[in-house]
């Protein structure tokens, strides 16, 4: 059957562990055929549903565009459940339905010093951000991670941007130290642009610090999604006005002040 529109059946080109220890820590780079996705802004995402899902799991999975070229789309995927386990176990030639680019990407202000705050797989959209930024020397990256650094696409990015630092969280005791570091980074970047992607607690911390220092900051949410296209109302987040907005169409990237960002929202 043919393709109808913006949803395409594509081939997996390769699935490879990221770095020598990637397989042991479930970190993979998935390369898919680019079926002619429209121009994408870093921070936008795609929905992927491998044929292998059958009827279970039922939903496709959302992933940030980690790298997009005219021929290939690369995703950085951490195996952490049924869907990602299947994805990371795919082989070249396997098929998947793919649609995107979806949602709103990060703000791009080439002349403004921009700090990228990434936690874990939250580094994915920043790979594309740095690769497509007209003045990458204006970028700096602060990366918090739990798996070995080589399991993330960090090294190549570090070469590209003005400044890059990584912070390994080995034990829970390391967390307050990392938060202290984030506090200093946000304080120092208050006149620039701050972009953050990572687990929700990390984003809540960034949002709190951005408010504290009146910094301009965007966060990329990873709310659970069923459709990714605005059809189900399952992915919503409470905004500053108390209404629920769809993170798949109006996000996943939001300015901090647009959202309520409470623990229970």
């Amino acid at each position: 059957m043919g393709n109808f529109g913006a949803c395409r059946d594509v081939s997996i080109l390769s699935v490879a562990p990221c770095g020598p220890e990637g397989a042991a820590h479930g970190c993979y780079l998935l390369e898919l055929e680019n079926p002619g996705l429209g121009p994408a802004a870093a921070g936008q995402f795609v929905m992927v549903r491998p044929e292998r899902f059958g009827q279970n799991p039922i939903w496709p999975r959302p992933f940030s565009i980690c790298r997009l070229t005219t021929r290939t789309l690369t995703l950085f995927v951490q195996a952490c459940g049924r869907g990602t386990d299947i994805l990371c176990g795919l082989a070249a030639g396997d098929k998947a339905a793919l649609w995107g680019p979806l949602g709103q990407g990060f703000a791009l202000e080439p002349e403004i010093p921009t700090v990228m705050l990434a936690g874990g797989v939250g580094i994915a959209p920043f790979v594309e951000y740095a690769a497509t930024h007209p003045a990458p020397s204006n970028l700096s990256l602060v990366f918090g991670h739990r798996q070995p650094l080589s399991c993330y696409p960090f090294a190549a990015m570090a070469e590209l941007v003005g400044r890059a630092e990584a912070f390994c969280e080995k034990t829970p005791d390391d967390l307050p130290v990392f938060i202290e570091r984030l506090d200093a980074v946000v304080a120092g970047a208050a006149s620039g642009l701050i972009l953050a992607c990572g687990p929700r607690p990390f984003l809540l911390t960034v949002a709190r610090l951005a408010r504290k220092y009146s910094a301009r900051a965007q966060v990329s949410l990873e709310n659970r999604m069923a459709c990714g296209v605005g059809g189900c109302l399952g992915c919503v987040e409470k905004n500053a006005l108390g209404a629920y907005v769809q993170t798949c169409t109006e996000g996943p990237v939001f300015w901090v002040e647009e959202l309520a960002l409470a623990e229970d929202a």
Binding site: Q55, N56, N223, K238, Y244
Partner: peptide, 15 residues
């Protein structure tokens, strides 16, 4: 307004 989050959960062959 609708219900608070989370509003959806995946279940075997459904949701």
């Amino acid at each position: 307004l609708g219900n608070p989050m989370p509003r959806i959960a995946e279940t075997p062959c459904g949701m």
